[in-house]
Amino acid sequence: MTEPTVHITPKAARKMKELVAARPHANPESGVRLGIKGGGCSGLSYVIEFCDRPRAKDKVLEPEGARVYVDPKSLLYLNGTTLDYVDTFQQKGFQFQNPQQRSECGCGQSFSI
């Protein structure tokens, strides 16, 4: 039986590691929190932010040596999601690809399932 999880591409993992390391007050636990939050025009919205103190129930992922935390509630929504990092001439940034997602608004930050 597979645990619900979030897939993180090596590219995204490396980028996260690099960004976390560059922060002034990073500690050994410092990483990135992924999650979802109510609100936004389509109902739910993705969260991706730095995290210096994980919470007890967080799921901890360690792709490519990066530390990624997901709280259990968000994990339900994010299960099966792939997080990628896109870096093209035109644009760069992290991108959630969620198979459960049914619709998305223009900004890509909000979605509903």
């Binding site: 990135v32 936004g40 919205s45 993705y46 991706i48 932010e49 730095f50 992290f94 223009g106 900004c107």
Partner: peptide
């Protein structure tokens, strides 16, 4: 769309969408 990593607690659900 592409997102950037926010500071802790600063993720905003903005009217941007």
């Amino acid at each position: 769309a592409l997102l950037e990593i926010a500071e802790p607690g600063q993720s905003q659900v903005k009217e941007a969408c």
